[in-house]
Design a protein around this nucleic acid. Structure first.
Length: 479
RNA sequence: CGGGGCGUGGCACAGCCCGGUAGUGCGCACGGUUCGGGUCCGUGAGGUCAUCGGUUCAAAUCCGAUCGCCCCGACCA
């Protein structure tokens, strides 16, 4: 018999582990409509912390938030040829409104370049109006065939930034600035090590001149595109007449960008850090950073313990802290439940601690006895603060180590195939060629994840064609 | 849309082959017990067996159709 209290181990069935974890940690649930997701309060609290971390970075670089409509006229999408080709297979279309057939079908936005481009064309007249730096928090719909909670659902929540600039240099600078913000967020807030890089021609966004990505390695070694930033050149400006008069009174097309990060990132956090006990959340993003579990048997013990618990809780007011004072479940039950939900630090206070002026600390990132320590009640805020920092740092270090251990540099294509077969990543010299890329995908299921910004320099022979090239790239199987 | 599987209390499943008044575990409610790693015991609530039709004295079980879901492929933040 399977122990229903335990998660299916990662090593046994990774996707089952993932699904059980998401649902039992109460992050999200399946909705009545196939492929749709209900984000539960705990999952949404995590998303709100992600939003705050990103929003503060956006604001610091001059961006503002706004909201654009959910419905977009079908004709808007058709104005940019590559864009409509890329998105039409996955559109949800509304044809009836208020009981009668609409003159023009509306699509539920799969992304907002078109409607925002349309508005920008009205707002922008002069070079003095530029740059326009707007971000939107919202939801979009893409009718995907196979779905998974957070990673790919019919509807998902994200932010999409859309900017317009006077020059190609400014647009490229913006595209890279936002990529760097994503990288900074992923590494320093989520403890998810990512590789920032450029997408190949075949993998880029429909309608972009070029796309950048942050690529992360999940616990099963598959790659996950965790955020994207696109330089749209003048493609959308031309399609939507986003024009301005420059200093010389000459009409010019704008240069635009777009960049997005979605609730998929929650999937990245789960699959980067989670273990067989459940979630492990980075302290900087965890909705609850510290859970206090009081332990007592008799009434008089309860009073003494709760007095200490209250005092400690007040001392920790600078942290996101909760007390689990339920009496209907045992401490052991609570330990397991909060571990499942990934709370970084657990604080136990029992009769022994009352007597010794101590508390027991258990860190989530180090399971078992090694992660447990007893510390004095005095100076608890300082102790806890340092430990949360240590957890955050350790999570990043562990994830980085795991990733680096599974990136290989094959000598030849045979070795390449063998590595991909075992789900490793390949870091190889590459001569850009869409046909060769397709051939590799066909044969191995691996895709060109990115051309990293950080290049080693020098030259080498392309892993596939043998031609000389000056760039190295990553290939891997991906979500 | 191609290949495979499954629909039975909230969840996970047994029962179906060989028709005879619906079962187990988890969860839930109540009482007690326990509480420093998912306590234990007792009592109880909860299901027109996916739907429609057929065979039969009798259908969760046999036959037919329909619907839905899951897994494997093609598409993808």
């Amino acid at each position: 018999m399977v122990d229903e209290k335990k998660l299916t181990p990662k090593s046994e069935n990774y996707s089952e582990w993932y699904n059980q974890l998401v649902q039992r940690a109460e992050l999200a649930d399946y909705a009545p409509v196939r492929g749709c997701m209900v984000v539960r309060p705990y999952g949404w609290a995590l998303w709100e912390n992600i939003q705050d971390a990103l929003d503060s970075r956006f604001k610091a670089t001059g961006h503002v938030n706004a909201a654009f409509p959910l419905f977009i006229p079908m004709s808007f999408l058709e104005k940019e040829k590559e864009h409509v080709e890329g998105f039409s297979p996955e559109l949800a279309v509304v044809t009836i409104g208020g009981g009668s057939e609409l003159e023009e079908p509306l699509i539920v936005r799969p992304t907002s370049e078109t409607i925002i481009g349309y508005m920008y064309s009205k707002w922008i007249q002069s070079y003095r109006d530029l740059p326009v730096l707007i971000n939107q928090w919202g939801n979009v719909v893409r009718w995907e065939m196979r779905t998974r909670l957070f990673l790919r659902t019919l509807e998902f929540y994200w932010q999409e930034g859309h900017t317009a600039h006077a020059t190609p240099e400014e647009a490229e600078e913006e595209t890279l600035r936002m990529l760097n913000i994503y990288t900074d967020f992923a590494v320093n807030e989520a403890a998810v090590p990512v590789i920032p890089g450029r997408k190949s021609e075949s993998e880029k966004f429909a309608g972009a001149v070029h796309s950048y990505t942050i690529e992360a390695m999940m616990g099963d070694k598959k790659a996950l595109q965790a955020g994207t930033s696109h330089n749209l050149g003048q493609n959308f400006a031309k399609a939507f007449d986003i024009d301005y008069l420059d200093e010389n009174n000459t009409l010019q097309h704008c240069w635009t960008t777009s960049w997005g990060l979605s609730t998929r990132f929650i999937g990245a956090i789960i699959m980067t850090h989670g273990d067989d006990q459940g979630l492990i959340l980075p302290p900087r993003l965890a909705p609850t950073q510290i859970i206090i579990v009081p332990i007592f048997r008799k009434d008089d013990e309860q009073q003494q313990v709760m007095a200490v618990v209250e005092r400690i809780k007040n001392e920790l007011h600078d942290f996101r802290v909760k007390v689990d004072d339920r009496t209907e479940v045992t401490p052991g039950f609570k330990f397991n439940q909060w571990e499942l939900r990934g709370v970084p630090l657990r604080l136990e206070i029992g009769p022994k601690d009352v007597a010794n002026n101590s508390v027991a600390l258990a860190r989530r990132d180090i399971p078992g006895r090694e992660g447990k320590s007893f510390v004095p009640q005095a100076g608890i805020a300082q102790t806890v603060s340092e430990m949360l920092d240590a957890i955050q740092a350790n999570m990043l270090e562990k994830a980085t180590q795991f990733r680096d251990e599974h990136i290989y540099e094959p000598k030849d294509y045979d070795e390449f195939k063998e590595i991909i077969q075992n789900d490793g990543w390949c870091y190889v010299w590459w001569k850009p060629n869409a046909e060769n890329e397709a051939a590799i995908k066909e044969e191995t299921k691996a895709t060109l994840r990115c051309i990293p910004l950080d290049q080693p320099g020098g030259k080498g022979k392309c892993i596939f064609s043998g031609e000389e090239s000056d760039q190295k790239v990553y290939f891997a199987k991906a979500y």
